[in-house]
Design a protein around this nucleic acid. Sequence first.
DNA 1: ACCATATTTGTACTATCGTCCAAATATTCA
DNA 2: TGAATATTTGGACGATAGTACAAATATGGT
Lengths: 248, 248
Amino acid sequence: MVRKPAKSGIKADAKVASTRKPNMREAILAAAEELFSTYGFNAVSVRDIAQAAGANPGSVTYHFKTKDGLLLEIYRRHCGPMNRRRSELLAAARRVRDLQDRLEAIVRAYVLPAFTSGSDLAGGGTRFTRLRAIMSAEGNEVVRKIIAQTFDDTSHAFIDAIHESLPHIPRTDLVWRGHFLLGALYYTLVTPERVSRLSRGSADGTDAGHAIEELVCATVAALQAAPLDQPTPVPRKAAGVNPGRALT
Amino acid sequence: MVRKPAKSGIKADAKVASTRKPNMREAILAAAEELFSTYGFNAVSVRDIAQAAGANPGSVTYHFKTKDGLLLEIYRRHCGPMNRRRSELLAAARRVRDLQDRLEAIVRAYVLPAFTSGSDLAGGGTRFTRLRAIMSAEGNEVVRKIIAQTFDDTSHAFIDAIHESLPHIPRTDLVWRGHFLLGALYYTLVTPERVSRLSRGSADGTDAGHAIEELVCATVAALQAAPLDQPTPVPRKAAGVNPGRALT
DNA sequence: ACCATATTTGTACTATCGTCCAAATATTCA
DNA sequence: TGAATATTTGGACGATAGTACAAATATGGT
């Protein structure tokens, strides 16, 4: 790690109260999650985590064996609740009558848990999703495994649900557009200040609520776009939103 | 670095020909770019780079002083040509008569150089953009500076051009949607195999040409979506693509 | 209070990190 | 060619990495 944010301050000098060891394992997990999601996995050392948690480096090894094991446990903590929440919201979304509303509900069911899940802590969902974003770029092997076997089922369920609402669009296109959604979501969590900067202050990239609305709105429109092959299919109504292949 | 891809093989055992030192500085730059864009900045050591370039670790220090300096030089190499290409394509796109075609041309002008720029080497554009994606997640300080002072002007130019084609949509929304475009672009370059996996083989995430088409199509549709505030403005035609705020 | 167990501590090990430097070698130009 | 310069080499430095382990301490059941 490079930056040193001057320590917390609240942790006290010990001794005073008996608040020393309520649950060190949890403290380590929380510290690791915060540091990993901020600086990335490779840039944070086990010693950084131990210090932030007020623990001894040896304790990290004791509880999680290796640094990879610590990362794995963080994923285990969040994947279950997040996917459960997604399934619940997806099931509710499927019951929406109006096709247009249903599509939006499905997208919202995918996006919302990424911001709000997190078992208990405030901002837990955002933090974990930011971690996932960073890990997808750094490319850890442990993560690649757990991602493929934990999130792919959910992703397929969402793609299927979307395909039901938009049967005239090939599944392949929907996979691409869902992929773009995840990329946009990740990037927004990783670089929110860019939005504030480019909008010259008229937008706040860190405002999760507004980010969700923008993301849902843009994604619903993207999903409904005419597929690549057909020049102007016009499924029901919808303006000619697509090609022409101009330029080059 | 963790993975060891068993070395190149082509580099030969030296001695045979006089192909030993055409330009070591360039070889180091190329090796660093390849490794950084694959494993990330933090995961690659100066020694990894030197070995991949067939150079001595000391040579890296000699030519670039520090590891950060090496990264900086890679950015300097690519930012100029890429932004120049973008400006050219943007100027051409602005001259397109039809508003719909013009919008698509503008988006294409933004996306294309990210895949094809790169001064000389094949795949140079893709590699550098993948590097930018990884660096945006890892959050290097050197990069943050050069990004803000090199790409923001171009980004503003594109947002302005888009705003001209879609004057009824608030600039703020266009900033968000342009942000999503970049996130989707980055994610596609960083995790292309996810598309292949989720589409069960019916799509190839590494096919840059197809990725561009999908990205442009989805983005054009997203840009045209009705803005958040107005429930159903219907600028010219375009179906009610937006809200309802269903669920939750 | 006692013992068995769980946890924490402090330290040490080896490996590798980025960077430095003096000596060796290659290159360039008068 | 010979001197000046540019580059490469190999080794070294201190710092820090992940992990292991024995000793110290806290905890919970009886």
